[in-house]
Design a protein around this nucleic acid. Structure first.
Length: 501
RNA sequence: GCCGCAUUCGUCUAGAGGCCCAGGACACCGCCCUCUCAAGGCGGAGAUCACCGGUUCGAAUCCGGUAUGCGGUACCA
């Protein structure tokens, strides 16, 4: 095949939020286009009017934008007109195109009107199933006479349009799986391409549009592999050139079934809301079913655009592994510049505030100051509240029981905290730095014969309310001398009061 | 049921006849670092390459069959 221009597309249905699987397919199409110097097209397949919504369309466009997958043709904003030489790119706005194609098939007798009701078809299917036969349309309406049609019309029946399947073998060369051959007799008979209400169905619109938009490579999920012969038959019947096909392995639930909302978290927006960064999402998704062929695994979108190829796409399905995503997310968070990280953290801190988990949102300067101890501790951006939220609440809740280190008793804890309080107070606000705090507190522990770790733990719990925090002295500095002493005082009171209880 | 696709450590994968009694990463375990938690470093455990036959001097890699899994089989996409 001569160098035809590469044109690929992602064709989501706005019947749900952007799904992990759709995002991965979009990514592979995008990467293929970029790598081949081709065109990446977004087409909205909204012919299932009952389940489609503009809100889902918006979620899908927003999600693709958030991942950095820019498309060359298609709608930019949900609901608004699309741009590109083949506009519109929303199927419900292309109905006349399908109607024209349907008319041609009808005129060529490659399609016919079927008056069977859903009930009749259902009964037929059940009968076949009961007889342990594969479900298949009988072809009852395949050769109706004009009189028979008129009789049905007189009954008020509205016909669906069926495509004649015929009896042959269809073979194609899948770019990932190699040669695939299917006998069309296994396709279940003539299939419906337009509903009784006139609205076109997926198998039909996908072919008409892929042809109209001059799609050169159809890269999609393996769940469409078995449907491909139907599409090829339609391409041929309509006299369109066939595109090349590449069927990607499925993304799987932990039980190795096709990934579903029911068993996994599938919405990209949910991952973004948790604080997964686009770099990690893209990196992880790219490595689900594809590899560089080397041992490299931290790859930016830029790297991927330069290296993606269909040869290294895996054939078998891949289980979605959240742990690995989290690890990659940490890798990417650690690579962000301070300014960038602050920008990305702010919305999450604002969300913490809105949820009432912190009492005020820190300033950018405060966040920047925290970065050295926070950046390597964030598995997700959303973990920020859990990590340092105690710095931005008016008062912490301290459990007296955890205030006492394992090797200590209550009295020692009170004594230790009092001594620590004096030591810290003596340092004063001017030299209140981590380097100034540590030596005297260590000296204190040594003088009293305490393990430094025990003393530090008691202080940590007193000022943060928790046993796992960023390094203690940085934490004290972030807290400031006043609030540090105040929290120590409160903790001492709590412990003293616990005596009574 | 029928049709199709797939099968390398728990998971993601490297591997395109000898470099592999199979390499990397996540997770797991241990050690180091260490004020806790992370991060990082080092090490460990973990795959008879689904199974059976064949081709070959030699097979994870080629061929055939079997098994298992998944997907499709809608007037959903």
């Amino acid at each position: 095949m001569p160098d035809e221009p590469v044109r690929v597309r992602i064709a989501p249905s706005p019947t749900g939020p952007l799904h992990i699987g759709t995002a991965r397919t979009a990514l592979f199409n995008y990467l293929y286009a970029r790598r081949q110097g081709g065109t990446f097209i977004l087409r909205i397949e909204d012919t299932d009017v009952a389940r489609s919504s503009i809100a889902y369309e918006k979620d899908i466009l927003d999600g693709l934008h958030a991942l950095g997958l820019k498309w060359d043709e298609g709608p930019e904003v949900a609901g608004q007109a699309a741009r590109g030489p083949h506009a519109p790119y929303r199927q419900m706005e292309r109905l006349d195109t399908y109607a024209a194609a349907a008319r041609r098939l009808l005129e060529d007798d490659k399609a016919y009107w079927c008056y069977c009701t859903p009930e009749e078809l259902d009964a037929e299917r059940k009968r076949l199933e009961a007889a342990k036969l594969p479900p298949r349309y009988s072809g009852r309406c395949a050769n109706l006479t004009a009189a028979e049609r008129a009789a049905f019309e007189a009954e008020g029946r509205k016909p669906a349009l069926r495509f004649r399947v015929g009896d042959e073998k269809v073979a194609f060369e899948d770019l990932i799986r190699g040669r695939v051959e299917i006998d069309t007799s296994a396709l279940g008979g003539d299939f419906v391409i337009a509903r009784a209400d006139g609205s076109p169905l997926y198998h039909f619109t996908v072919v008409v549009d892929d042809a109209a938009m001059e799609i050169s490579h159809v890269i999609r999920g393996e769940d469409h592999l078995s449907n491909t012969p139907k599409h090829i038959l339609l391409f041929r019947a309509l006299g369109y050139p066939e595109p090349r096909f590449a069927h990607l392995p499925l993304i799987l639930n932990a039980d190795r079934t096709k990934m579903s909302k029911r068993k996994s978290q599938t919405a990209i927006s949910d991952y973004l809301a948790e604080g997964f960064v686009r770099e990690a999402l893209v990196n992880y998704l790219a490595l689900l079913g594809w590899s560089t062929g080397t041992e490299e695994e931290i790859l930016s979108l830029d790297d991927l655009e330069r290296r993606f190829d269909l040869d290294h796409v895996q054939k078998a399905g891949a289980v979605f592994d959240r742990e690995r995503l989290e690890w990659l997310n940490g890798q990417w968070i650690r690579r962000l510049t301070p300014d960038d990280l602050v920008d990305r953290l702010r919305p999450f801190l604002e969300a913490e505030r809105a949820a009432g988990r912190i009492d005020r949102v820190p300033t950018d300067d405060e966040i920047v100051a925290l970065l050295p101890v926070v950046q390597e501790r964030l598995p997700t951006l959303g973990a920020i509240g859990d990590l340092v939220g105690f710095l931005f609440v008016d008062r912490v809740d301290v459990d007296p029981a955890v205030l006492v280190p394992k090797r200590w008793d209550r009295e020692t804890a009170i004594e230790g905290l009092r001594a620590a309080r004096e030591t810290i107070a003596a340092i004063g606000p001017i030299s209140y730095e981590a380097d100034e705090l540590e030596p005297p507190l260590r000296a204190l522990a040594e003088a009293r014969g305490w393990k430094a770790g025990d003393l530090f733990m008691a202080i940590r719990v007193a000022v943060t309310g928790r046993t796992a925090t960023p390094p203690l002295f940085d934490t004290l500095v972030a807290l400031g001398p006043e609030r540090s002493l105040e929290r120590l005082d409160r903790a001492i009171e709590r412990l003293a009061a616990a005596e009574v209880a």
